[in-house]
Simulated assay, not measured.
Amino acid sequence: MNNNSLATKPHYPILDGLRGVAAIIVVTFHLTEPLGTGHLDILVNHGYLAVDFFFLLSGFVIGYAYDDRWHKMSVGSFFKRRIERLQPMVVLGMILGAIGFYFTDSTIWPLIHTVPLWKMLLVMFIGFTVLPVPLSMDIRGWQEMHPLNSVTWSLFFEYIANILYAIGIRKFSNAALGLLVSVAAIALAHLAITSPNGDVSGGWTLNAEHLHIGFIRVMYPFFAGLLLSRIAKPTRIKNAFLWCSLLVALVLYMPRIGGADHLWMNGLYESVCIILVFPLIVYLGASGVIHGTTERRVCKFLGDISYPLYLVHYPLVYFYVAWISNNKGVTIVQAWPYAAMILFGSIVLAYASLKWFDEPVRKWLRKKADAKKQANHLSLTSR
C-alpha cells in the first residue's frame, strides 16, 4: 500500500489556521511570562491553555484521518507516520536549543557555564527521542524534562496519547469512549479547581506531580477530540475562521479570574474552556466555509508554520528571558520592541525551518519508506 493513500481525505483548512493562531498566542505568552511576578499577573494569562487546545485538535485530526483505515494499516505503520510527521522538527528544535545554550549568558541559569560539552550533547540526543531527562540531567536548572527546548514536554504527552489510541482506545465504541472522556473531564476539572495555583499549568518536569498534571491534561482533550471526530456532523458556517480565531484569542488572553483569594474560580474558568469551549471551537472550525483565496492562503500559511513555530520559538525566548533577568526592572514598554523582534524572528525561522528542513526531510523519509515497501513487494512476488 502506498503511504500517500492515507492522505487522500479532504483537509480542514480552518482548523489548520486556528492551530497557527494558537501557536502565535503561545509565543506572546512566553514573551510576557518573564515580565510577571507569578501566576496572577502575566499579561497573556491563559496562554498555556493553547497546549490543551492543541491536544484537542490532534485528537480530532487523528480520529478523522485514521479511525476508518485500520483495516489497511498496522500499528507499526501508524507510528511510522506519526514519527515522520513529528520528529524532524523535534530534532531541529533540540539542535537550535543546543546551539543557543552556551550563548545565553545570565545569572538566572548559573549551571550553563559549568556544563561539559558531552553532557549537553547527551541531553540533546536524548531530546531527539522526546524521552524526558531526569532531574539529575537538568543542565539549565529550571527542572525541565527537556532543558534545551522546554516546550517539547507536550510532545512527550502527545506521543503517550497516540500510543494509547493505537494499541487500544481506537477500538472503543462511542459509548465506551464517551465514558472515558467523561471520567477524564471530571479528573481535569478536579485538577484545575483544587490546584494550589488554581490552574492546569504544569507537565514539564519529570516528577510525580508534573507527570500527573501532564497525563490529566492530555487525556480529556485528546480523546474528546477523537470522540468529536466520530460524532460531529459539521454544517456550513460562514466566517467561521474569524469568529473561531476571536474565541481562541478571547480564551487565551483572558486575564486571571478570581485573584489570589478565589483561586478555584480560575480553575473553574479553565475547566469550562477546555471541556466545553474548545470542542465548540473545533466543531465550528470544522463546519466553517472558506471564502476567497486570501482566507485560504492565510489559513494555509498559519497551519504550515504552526508546528514549526511551536518548536523553534523557545530557543529564541531563552535569549529574551536572559536579557530581562540581566536588566532587572524591565517594563513591558521597554521590552515590547525586543518581544516583537522575537515574535517576528520566530515566525520567519518557523517558515524557513518548514521549507528548508521539515518538508524536505519528511519527503525524503516518505520516499525511503515507499522504496522499502516496493522492494519488499518485489521480493515477495518474485518467490
Score class of each variant (00 low, 15 high):
Ala166Asp: 12
Asn3Phe: 02
Tyr314His: 11
Ser77Asp: 07
Ala350Asn: 07
Asp16Lys: 02
His291Met: 02
Thr37Trp: 00
Ala339Leu: 12
Val321Thr: 11
Ile25Tyr: 04
Ile24Pro: 08
Leu378Thr: 01
Glu295Gly: 01
Lys300Tyr: 10
Glu144Asn: 12
Gly258Leu: 04
Met137Cys: 04
His11Asp: 14
Ala175Phe: 13
Asp304Gln: 13
Lys328Thr: 04
Ala322Trp: 11
Tyr283Met: 12
Leu35Lys: 09
Val21Ala: 04
Phe344Gln: 00
Ser195Glu: 07
Val133Ala: 15
Ile126Cys: 08
Arg366Gly: 02
Ala352Met: 14
Tyr283Ile: 04
Pro196Lys: 03
Ser201Gln: 10
Arg81Ile: 00
Val251Cys: 10
Tyr307Gln: 03
Leu96Ala: 04
Met341Lys: 07
Leu280Phe: 08
Val282His: 09
Thr205Ile: 07
Asp105Val: 15
Ala7Ile: 02
Leu354Asn: 13
Pro132Met: 14
Asp138Met: 10
Leu378Trp: 01
Ala260Ser: 11
Leu247Phe: 06
Pro234Leu: 15
Lys367Val: 05
Leu43Arg: 08
Gly285Cys: 09
Ile95Gln: 04
Ile186Met: 15
Met94Ala: 11
Thr331Met: 09
Leu354Gly: 09
Phe344Ser: 00
Ile231Ala: 08
Val277Arg: 11
Gly76Ile: 14
Ser5Pro: 00
Trp243Leu: 13
Glu33Leu: 12
Ile160Pro: 01
Tyr338Gln: 02
Gly20Pro: 03
Thr381Phe: 04
Tyr318Gly: 00
Leu15Arg: 05
Ile193Lys: 02
Met89Gly: 09
Thr107Asn: 12
Pro88Trp: 13
Met1Phe: 08
Met94Tyr: 03
Tyr318Met: 10
Lys373Met: 05
Leu164Met: 14
Ile290Leu: 13
Ala7Trp: 10
His39Arg: 09
Phe103Trp: 09
Lys300Gly: 05
Gly285Ile: 12
Ala65Ile: 00
Leu246Arg: 06
Pro279Phe: 14
Glu158Lys: 08
Arg297Thr: 00
Pro147Gly: 15
Thr107Pro: 02
Tyr253Cys: 15
Ala375Asp: 01
Ser271Thr: 14
Leu86Asp: 02
Tyr64Lys: 08
Leu263Trp: 02
Leu148Ala: 12
Pro110Asp: 05
Leu284Trp: 11
Arg140Ser: 14
Leu242Cys: 04
Pro10Trp: 10
Asp68His: 07
Met1Trp: 02
Asp261Ala: 13
Leu247Arg: 00
Val115Asp: 03
Val44Cys: 03
Leu179His: 03
Ser195Arg: 06
Ile24Gln: 08
Ser229Asn: 11
Ile126Lys: 07
Asp68Lys: 09
Gly267Asn: 08
Thr37His: 12
Val151Cys: 14
Asn266Tyr: 07
Leu206Tyr: 09
Asn4Lys: 13
Leu148Trp: 13
Met265Arg: 10
Asn4Tyr: 13
Met254Glu: 05
Ile274Gly: 01
Val298Leu: 15
Leu349Lys: 01
Ile305Leu: 15
Ala340Arg: 01
